[in-house]
């Protein structure tokens, strides 16, 4: 990912990068993108509903 395209993505969500942030942040975003790609191929059916944020396992 180029620094420019990363900045464009950040601009879209109203965030700014410092000079020092750019390289380590690009690495973190590359990892996010890897997980997003993996999830897009996850074995999920229509019946697989999400875990909810506010439900304890047995409440």
């Amino acid at each position: 990912m180029t620094t420019q395209s990363l900045q464009e993505r950040l601009d879209a969500v109203g965030q700014r990068l410092t000079e020092a942030d750019q390289k380590p942040f690009a690495e973190m975003v590359a990892d996010v993108d890897r997980i997003v790609t993996w999830l897009s191929g996850a074995d999920l059916s229509y019946a697989d509903e999400p875990a909810t944020c506010f439900a304890a396992p047995r409440s």
Partner: peptide
């Protein structure tokens, strides 16, 4: 950096992560 990386997560990916989590 860690928190800002969350801005890069599409809503569909977050929901699918929670679906796979339940599974």
């Amino acid at each position: 950096r860690w928190i800002m990386s969350g801005a890069m997560v599409p809503a569909s990916a977050y929901i699918n992560a929670q679906r796979l989590r339940a599974k």
